[in-house]
Design a protein around this nucleic acid. Structure first.
Length: 576
RNA sequence: CGGAGCGUAGCGCAGCCUGGUAGCGCGCUUGGUUUGGGACCAAGAUGUCGGAGGUUCGAAUCCUCUCGCUCCGACCA
């Protein structure tokens, strides 16, 4: 491609509404433009990277035995009513009516449509296992779209759905997808972790997320430094084996703590560590229960783990009025003594004696509090957020490291939730109808490209890995008016095209500085500079974008050298 | 949906408080000089000041309503 004939509108300045680096750079590099909040057009350069991501996904899905199809964006309401999600999905589901006033929605995910297809086309266990996927535009009317392609309302997703007769087969399908996902992200050249995840509202009992590691990631993850265990902090288990409660040495004593509300303030006031304080959180569940939760002062409550162990849909910190009602004190002074509601505690609390707790009155705390003696706890459970340094629950010898991650893929074992709701069955070997056991597997294609940029950039621009880079090499023609230089660059360009190298020739009539800045910004992995100065010696300059390495290469050798570097950049090993 | 903020040229912004001919930088067009890291000179073009209503002799500026966008929280690929 010739730059002079391409649409590549780079921006010198960062658009004011772009907050994260990938959004800023994709705007500046002319990859995307915004049409509305959370809705973007891909310009030619952005589309090239997106297509590469899609192609890698496609190849690895195919390799894993999945079959591509394409489902509609406009979904008839009947299917969603049948699964029960027409009512449940809420406002994220964009609904509309056709000219006959029939209800439709834009597909945010396609369990309903695929299940409908499969129940109508698959009748026998002999046709299983089956895994169908598509790469398609999804629409979710997010409450708050943000960060450019990272969280759009309209976005491109690969979604796959597996169908098996039995649970064991579904496990095999799941494992195949897990391997395929590892292959996909390995091939992209991304640093990522596959982590155990909460399966959330989609349901199912087993789930992994694929997290691209980046400082700007919205998710916290922990991984063991000695074994393979890794998990979203929402899910990460902790071990509490052998915790013994130390003997009490102090009497319970009421103390005045004027104006000291936070754990830090109270601990400092009493000249104690926050670890000697036990905080009491008043929470409300989706089942309308209000209960007290005890945690060591320096720990954070993990509401998802709490919701899971209470077997409720969600848990929220109680409103100030509720806190006042149950503790008889404003927020900040809650304590377990004298409460009439259920009190549960994080297991770690068992290991503390003589601690500080709230006094259920303004400016009052208790010191020397002890479990059992001063109050009772109905249950000890694992409900705190994991942090770096915690012991690994699997190998028990390793420690957690913590990372920020961007969720680019998520795989779920669905079970029979949809097949039962929509009566999708096949006949087994005994001629008996069995509900299909399903799995679903998503990858955000656009988000993956954005995540790659979050992970690979510097102050001058993007540094996309070779497999995702929109072009593999940029040939920068410095003096377009110098016939010799132009001819050499044109010849090089043609040579590279003949070698199937994806080359962008910067043949614009611009000053060198502009060309170099643009080249750095759009971050093509290799840059070959053809200029009068070096051409006199028969050389061109090769610069590697991400290492900054520069070398002089004889004109005659450059194409083959580039070809080799491209091949190296695309090489990958399959994870089996 | 709750909280905060912003809408003025393609992009980044000033002007608004204290009402009086709509500005700056970049970009764009033309001509010239330049040409290895975002050049310089000259001449140009570009605006329903987000929209509607109101106050006023007069509104980008004051008032009311409305729409859009961004950021922080609960959701998710």
């Amino acid at each position: 491609m010739r730059y002079s004939q391409y649409l590549l509108p780079t921006l010198k300045e960062t658009p004011a509404d772009a907050e994260v680096i990938s959004h800023q750079l994709m705007m500046r590099a002319g990859m995307i433009r915004k049409a509305a909040a959370g809705i973007y057009s891909y310009l030619p350069l952005g589309l090239r990277s997106l297509r590469k991501m899609e192609q890698i996904i496609r190849e690895e899905m195919n390799r894993a035995g999945a079959i591509e199809c394409l489902m509609p964006m406009a979904n008839p309401a009947e299917l969603w009513q049948e699964s029960g999600r027409w009512e449940k999905y809420g406002k994220e589901l964009l609904r509309f009516k056709d000219r006959k006033s029939a209800d439709f929605c834009m597909g945010p995910t396609h369990e309903e449509v695929i299940t409908d297809i499969v129940r109508n086309t698959v009748n026998s266990y002999k046709q299983l296992p089956l895994n169908l996927y598509q790469i398609q535009t999804k629409f979710r009317d997010e409450i708050r779209p943000r960060f450019g392609l990272m969280r759009g309302r309209e976005f491109i997703m690969k979604d796959a759905y597996s169908f098996d007769l039995e649970d064991a087969g579904a496990d095999t399908s799941y494992k195949k997808m897990y391997q395929a996902y590892r292959n996909i992200f390995n091939r992209c050249g991304l640093k990522y972790r596959s982590v155990e995840a909460d399966s959330g509202a989609i349901g199912g009992n087993f789930s992994h997320e694929f997290m691209v590691l980046a400082e700007s990631g919205e998710d916290g993850i922990v991984s063991c430094d000695s074994c393979q265990y890794a998990a979203n902090v929402e899910k990460a288990e902790l071990i509490y084996a052998g915790i013994e409660t130390p003997a009490a040495t102090l009497e319970l004593q009421r103390v005045d703590t004027p104006g000291q509300k936070t754990i830090e303030e109270v601990a400092e006031f009493l000249k104690l560590s926050p670890k000697q304080v036990v905080k009491t959180l008043i929470v409300q569940t989706s089942d309308d229960e209000v209960l007290a939760v005890l945690l060591r002062g320096d720990r954070e409550l993990n509401t998802i783990k709490l919701a899971n162990c209470l077997d409720v849909d969600w848990v929220l910190l109680a409103e100030d009025e509720v806190v006042k009602e149950v503790t008889d004190a404003p927020t900040g002074f809650a304590g377990p003594i004298g409460l009439t509601i259920r009190v549960i505690a994080d297991a770690e609390v068992q290991g503390i004696a003589d601690f500080v707790i709230g006094g259920n009155a303004v400016d009052v705390h208790f010191v020397g509090a002890n479990l059992g003696r001063d109050f009772e706890v109905s249950q000890f459970v694992d409900i705190r957020q994991a942090v770096a340094g915690d012991s690994c629950p699997r190998c028990e010898s390793g420690k957690f490291e913590s990372w920020r991650g961007i969720e680019v893929g998520h795989i779920f074992k669905l079970g029979t939730k949809y097949s039962e709701a929509m009566n999708a069955t096949v006949l087994d070997a005994q001629g008996k109808a069995q509900p299909l056991v399903m799995g679903c597997y998503g990858i955000g294609a656009g988000r993956s490209v954005a995540a790659a940029i979050e992970q690979n950039h510097d102050e001058n621009g993007m540094m996309l890995p070779m497999p995702l880079a929109p072009f593999q090499v940029m040939v920068t023609l410095l003096n377009p008016k110098d016939d010799d230089v132009r001819e050499a660059a044109e010849k090089l360009y043609q040579q590279m095209l003949d070698l199937d190298i994806e080359v962008l020739l910067d043949d614009r009539d611009e000053r060198p500085g502009i060309k170099f800045k643009d080249a750095d910004l759009i971050g093509i992995p290799l840059r070959v500079t053809v200029g009068a100065r070096n051409l006199k010696e028969g050389n061109v300059e090769l610069k590697v974008r991400n290492s900054g390495a520069m070398s002089m290469v004889p004109l005659a050798d450059i194409s083959s050298q580039v070809q080799q570097l491209v091949a190296e950049g695309l090489a990958f090993e399959l994870d089996r």
